[in-house]
Amino acid sequence: MGIKNTPVNHHNNYHAHVYFEQETLAFATKLCEQAGDLFSLSIGRVHQKNVGPHPKWSCQISFSSQDFDAFIPWLEKERHGLTVLVHALSGNHLKDHTDYAYWLGEPAELNLSLFKN
């Protein structure tokens, strides 16, 4: 399958990881807060360090297949150049971050070694 550019709604639950840097911290924080408010989504911490497989600072947004069709186009429109990793929550972390991963913006190289035994 590989990583695709356009998210497809094939799973029950997802994460969107909004990537940012010091210069875009305020914008990314506001974007994630807006997503939570507008769509009643669960927003994770705004990490000002690399966490897990993520190669940049990030904030996680949790959402379901029911939110997908309204949330993803909104996020694509409102991200203003930020990269966003969208991936399924299938229970298989490696597949979630590879086969079931999609990008809004420029793809980033994930540290997948965390998921390999």
Rank of each mutant, 00 (worst) to 15 (best):
L25P: 02
G36D: 09
H80L: 15
G44M: 00
L112F: 10
T83A: 14
G105Q: 06
W103V: 04
S40Y: 08
G44S: 00
F27P: 02
V84W: 01
F71V: 10
V51F: 05
A35C: 09
I72Y: 02
K116R: 15
L85M: 13
I3V: 11
K49W: 10
E23A: 11
I72S: 02
K77C: 12
N5L: 09
F115Y: 15
K116S: 14
L41V: 12
K49G: 11
D69S: 14
S90N: 13
L114W: 08
P107T: 02
V86K: 07
G91M: 13
H15Q: 05
N5H: 04
Q34A: 12
G52S: 12
H11N: 04
D37G: 03
N13A: 11
P7L: 03
L82Q: 11
A28D: 10
D96R: 04
V51Y: 04
P53V: 05
I3P: 00
V18Q: 02
F71Y: 14
H47D: 12
G81A: 06
V51W: 07
T6G: 00
E76Y: 01
G2R: 08
W103C: 08
D69L: 05
N5D: 09
Q66E: 13
K77W: 10
V46Q: 08
V46M: 07
K30Q: 15
F68E: 01
L82I: 10
F20V: 01
F39R: 02
E33S: 11
H15D: 15
D99C: 01
G44Q: 00
H10I: 14
F115L: 14
K77D: 14
E78H: 05
Q66I: 05
N117W: 10
Q48F: 05
A26D: 15
D99A: 09
L31E: 06
G2M: 11
G44V: 02
Y19L: 13
L104N: 03
C32L: 07
I43D: 07
N117L: 12
L25R: 06
N9K: 14
G105N: 08
D69H: 08
T83R: 05
E78L: 00
R45G: 12
F63G: 05
A35I: 04
H10M: 15
N50D: 13
T98Y: 09
R79M: 01
H11V: 00
L25D: 12
F39Q: 02
H54E: 07
K49N: 12
Y102C: 08
K116L: 15
A108L: 12
A26R: 07
V51L: 09
K95I: 01
Y100R: 10
S90M: 14
L41F: 09
R79W: 00
V18P: 01
Q48R: 15
H97W: 07
K49C: 13
V8Q: 14
Q34S: 13
P7T: 00
V8S: 12
N50E: 15
V84D: 03
G44L: 00
